[in-house]
């Protein structure tokens, strides 16, 4: 899984800490999410997408 979290976070000038606090998770979770090493719940995916003003399917790219 690839994500555009880092790119969008930079666009809105948000640090990993800012995003973590905004969606109510630990900073490591954002680190793992950015690296595509964590499959989030639908709720968290929705919250991150909302915080980055985008849609879930534009934020997470699944590869077969």
């Amino acid at each position: 899984m690839k994500t555009r979290i880092k790119e969008l976070r930079a666009r809105y000038n948000l640090t990993q800490e800012d995003l973590a606090k905004k969606v109510g998770v630990r900073r490591e979770t954002i680190v793992f999410l950015e690296k595509g090493k964590y499959n989030p719940s639908l709720q968290l995916a929705h919250d991150v997408a909302k915080a980055l003003k985008t849609k879930i399917d534009e934020l997470f790219i699944f590869e077969k």
Partner: peptide, 14 residues
């Protein structure tokens, strides 16, 4: 430290 900085002690990943 995390509580002081405003992070949750546990989240869905932990």
């Amino acid at each position: 430290r995390d509580m002081k900085e405003g992070y949750p002690l546990r989240d869905e990943r932990s």
